[in-house]
């Protein structure tokens, strides 16, 4: 009865092991396999060792893409997190049609398929018939996202903000709603200002959900593919070519499977590293452990 080692446990974790193996481990190992071989076709593969890795790390286009990607993710976080929190603070609370309406409106962008978001913005930002693009041109701005790299970049950023700020706002809103009203009463009795209430009650209380929001938005934006692919196709030039697009071009466009695989592994490690660093840093802020 009291066997310290129970082999039946293996049976119980088997389904999970199988699913994870087929969905994550095996594909990942395949990629590792590719990354150390030169593949010409089925059955024609030659061991090359770390050659692809060296090639990838020396590739200047990759470094550019990585830099662009980091700038992009930082910009996304810098805009979406404060904006989302601000929206959540302005949202009506309690039950009633106002709250329901706001929630539905906010959830709408999240419900739209990603490639459709790209298409919407492709049309919206067009200088001739697009509402946004044409309006900007009427204002006298020389706006052209298909020709000007900066315009393209800003358009992709605006699209991401439009698409994903809602998520941050909804998470922040959930965090705000979880604060017992007694906290606000206590603050009122203390004579605390609006800013103090935000800084010392709402923000610390939202910490948990904001960590999740930052992590989600970071990982998602770091792996962004669909929307810029539809909107700009990575152009003009390479202005909006982010890591995933660079990778796809390499693997599918040029059929450089080995290089692309090596790149995938590096990409994966970068995301893992960033997420880990982010997580350990962010979970210690404000808990007293950081000091």
């Amino acid at each position: 009865m009291d066997k310290p080692w129970n082999n039946r446990a293996w049976l119980l974790v088997l389904p999970v092991v199988a699913i994870v193996a087929f969905s994550a481990i095996l594909p990942l190992m395949t990629v590792v396999n590719y990354s150390v071989q030169d593949i010409f076709g089925p059955g024609q593969a030659y061991w090359v060792g770390t050659e692809w890795y060296r090639k990838v790390l020396e590739d200047e286009r990759l470094r550019d893409a990585l830099l662009r990607q980091m700038l992009y993710s930082l910009a996304v976080l810098a805009i979406e997190i404060p904006l989302g929190v601000a929206i959540a603070l302005c949202m009506p609370s309690g039950k009633g049609w106002r709250t329901s309406l706001t929630l539905v409106l906010l959830a709408l962008p999240l419900l739209i398929p990603w490639n459709v978001v790209g298409t919407i913005w492709q049309i919206f930002a067009r200088g001739d018939i697009g509402l946004g693009g044409a309006a900007l041109q009427r204002l006298g701005l020389d706006y052209n996202y298909t020709g000007d790299p900066l315009d393209a970049w800003l358009t992709v950023l605006a699209m991401d903000v439009w698409h994903w700020t809602s998520l941050v706002a909804l998470l922040a809103y959930a965090g705000l709603q979880a604060i017992p009203p007694a906290f606000y009463q206590a603050a009122k009795i203390d004579g605390a200002s609006r800013w103090s209430v935000f800084r010392y009650i709402q923000l610390p209380k939202m910490r948990g959900v904001l960590i999740i929001a930052v992590l989600l938005r970071f990982m998602d934006s770091f792996m962004i593919y669909t929307e810029p692919f539809v909107l700009t196709g990575g152009g003009p030039g390479n202005a909006t070519t982010f890591l995933s697009q660079f990778l796809t071009r390499m693997a599918v466009g040029q059929f450089d499977l080995g290089v692309a695989a090596a790149f995938s592994i590096i990409y994966f490690l970068i995301v893992l590293l960033f997420s880990y660093v982010f997580y350990t840093f962010i979970t210690k802020v404000g808990t007293g452990d950081a000091r």
Partner: peptide, 16 residues
């Protein structure tokens, strides 16, 4: 409340 001379303790544990 902010301008009265009052303090309050709640059912929930309210601290910063």
């Amino acid at each position: 409340a902010g301008r009265r001379d009052v303090a309050m303790v709640y059912q929930q544990f309210i601290n910063y």
